[in-house]
Design a protein around this nucleic acid. Structure first.
Lengths: 346, 346
DNA sequence: CGCAGTCATGACAGCGCAGTCATGCATCGG
DNA sequence: CCGATGCATGACTGCGCTGTCATGACTGCG
């Protein structure tokens, strides 16, 4: 920084420049900018006018340094365009913006070395007041968080994959939804329901598996072997070729819509009609679910509500560190029945 | 800030703490942390060991304040989970991370008052070294950027919707791809090709329209009326009911896969077979495109490559403000031919 | 009328880092 | 053998803001 450089015309205006123009002290400008009390209306107006004239924007770095708070929240997501995670991320962005915080994003990829803990670390390096971990997955070696974790963490869609203080969780409703989906098929008259599961490293996949299992148990049904997929339509297709060969399969609950779509294609190719021969239920209600052949019965998740509820908790934890955590409300779930599920032919 | 509070055990360590432990000056710690030259190997090791022992992380706000750079890049996206924009956002995240910058995200929603200019403003408030605008749309009143825009901007997937200095653009290849898709249908022997367009506020929608138009013109074909959709499968379905009623329609190029899927469903319901009666080509190659009925011929966009190329330009503009802009390389495009397109029956 | 209380404002310091410059020590060439 | 050069390091300062405290003006009340 050249000491005698003066401040060229290009330099961004600072609060003292505004202060000078408004004829007040720099501190008063700060008061106005932060909506602090004890500023007369007259002064407030003058300061705002001066700020506007100069095109003043307060310097965030300086504010963060002086106040010790960055007013930003970091999000860790899995770097995938899958409908569920992507929708949840959009919901989080909206919810964060509503709270007045800024958003920083770090993705992790499956199989990446640093993983979730690395992503959290990079957010802490950047300086955030809180962290959201969206749909975490299990990682090899387990996620070990920095011991000096001093910001609250919200884990969305799963119980935290690690032990840490200040952790709140929201939006664990998959199992109830999965159970509802399975029971829908049982109530249609199917003897049992097969499950096309997501990758078991994902909590949401395990959760849906549990919901399916609970529904079968509640109705005293035998539990057929689980078929594994990886969320992709391709894996659903592969699973479908297997299931199509088994005439005992009359109903399948897939852990997401993409797999359900791949599954239906394999069934069609094998000459098994949906829903006459096999009923299929998906999960997510992706935008195309209603328009594939046949239209897919599926479960709609309230991503926005989950994100909003969760962020309320997080912001509460940030701004009232001492207070008790807020109670969770379960967001509304919806089973959308379409043509892919029907009573079995007899 | 309590003056006499001392620094409790809970306080985050600062560079002077590291310096004290390593027996060097605070400035030397700064040198080591920033990989500056003129530090002996011995000292470097001692400092790193001390930092590790204390769990030191440099304070980003202080660094930004002292250096005048935040080392972060802001992204403005449309807040949608649509496959295309979401994939591009993921690509941008990865590319930003590769450059060593942090990422801040602000969404805009269609119809939101603040719009793109507001999102850019909020990023400038936060302090970013560069801005990426991903798939901008036209806004009512036009986007007027702050006159005091002093950071470079990268517009991804469109020419900038506003005039501003320091703007670079990348990834405008939709029209070529759309043209290729249309020509694929013409070469199969179709007399003409109908177009199911995206919302015309989106540049990418207009671009695909232009490509389609160019292909028809190059082959001296009449240009049938354009059908309007909004990217959704529902709008594709609505358009499909219209098109199905017209026996002259034998080939349709849809501006994205979701609309193509809705379209195919409407055709099926109307008793028009795909591809025997009507060929359909989509755009995006969403994960389910290969598994719908029939599997969809579509165009695959190189989102990651677009993001990486674009960010290379942006970082160059950030770090070498004087230098000429880097040349653009066109990323690879791919037409994926599947069963939804075939020669017309005669 | 005098004192306490409230409101409105300013002076000052310090947040934790990087930039600038000074300094001390080793190395080299003539 | 001595000045010129290069390397390694430290002292000091300031980035632009917020927190704390001091100060003065104004209000109400006994």
């Amino acid at each position: 920084m050249a000491p005698g450089a003066g401040r060229g015309a290009g330099a961004a205006p600072r609060s003292v420049d505004v202060a000078r123009l408004a004829g007040v002290s720099q501190k008063t400008v700060s008061r106005v900018m932060n909506d602090e009390p004890y500023v007369s209306e007259d002064v407030r107006r003058r300061v705002l006018a001066a700020a506007d004239e100069l095109g003043y924007r307060s310097n965030n770095a300086a504010r963060a340094l002086a106040s010790g708070r960055t007013r930003s929240i970091g999000v860790v997501t899995l770097g995938t365009a899958l409908y569920g995670p992507a929708s949840l991320l959009m919901g989080v962005e909206r919810a964060v913006r509503d709270t007045g915080y800024a958003l920083r994003v770090v993705n992790t990829m499956e199989g990446e070395t640093a993983g979730i803990a690395g992503a959290v670390g990079s957010l802490l390096d950047q300086g955030v007041d809180g962290i959201v971990i969206s749909e975490p997955i299990d990682e090899p070696g387990g996620a070990v968080l920095s011991a000096r974790l001093d910001v609250p963490i919200l884990v969305l869609g799963a119980p935290p994959p690690f032990a840490a203080p200040h952790v709140v969780t929201a939006g664990i409703v998959s199992d109830q939804m999965a159970r509802a989906a399975t029971e829908h098929l049982l109530e249609l008259g199917h003897t049992t329901v097969h499950h096309l599961a997501g990758p078991q490293r994902w909590y949401s996949a395990r959760d849906r598996l549990e919901g399916w299992r609970a529904a079968l148990a509640a109705h005293d049904r035998a539990e057929p072997p689980v078929v594994q997929g990886d969320w992709s339509a391709a894996s659903g297709y592969a699973a479908g070729r297997e299931l199509a060969a088994d005439p005992g399969v009359t109903a399948v609950f897939a852990a997401n819509d993409d797999m359900a779509i791949g599954l239906m294609r394999a069934l069609a190719e094998a000459g098994r009609r949906v829903p006459e021969d096999v009923s299929v239920v998906g999960f997510d209600d992706t935008p195309v679910a209603a328009y594939v052949t046949p239209p897919l019965t599926t479960v709609r998740q309230p991503f926005d509500a989950m994100a909003q509820d969760g962020l309320k908790l997080l912001v509460h934890a940030i701004e009232s560190p001492q207070a008790d955590p807020l109670p969770m409300t379960d967001p509304p779930v919806e089973l959308v029945v379409r043509a892919s599920s029907a009573p079995p032919l007899r």
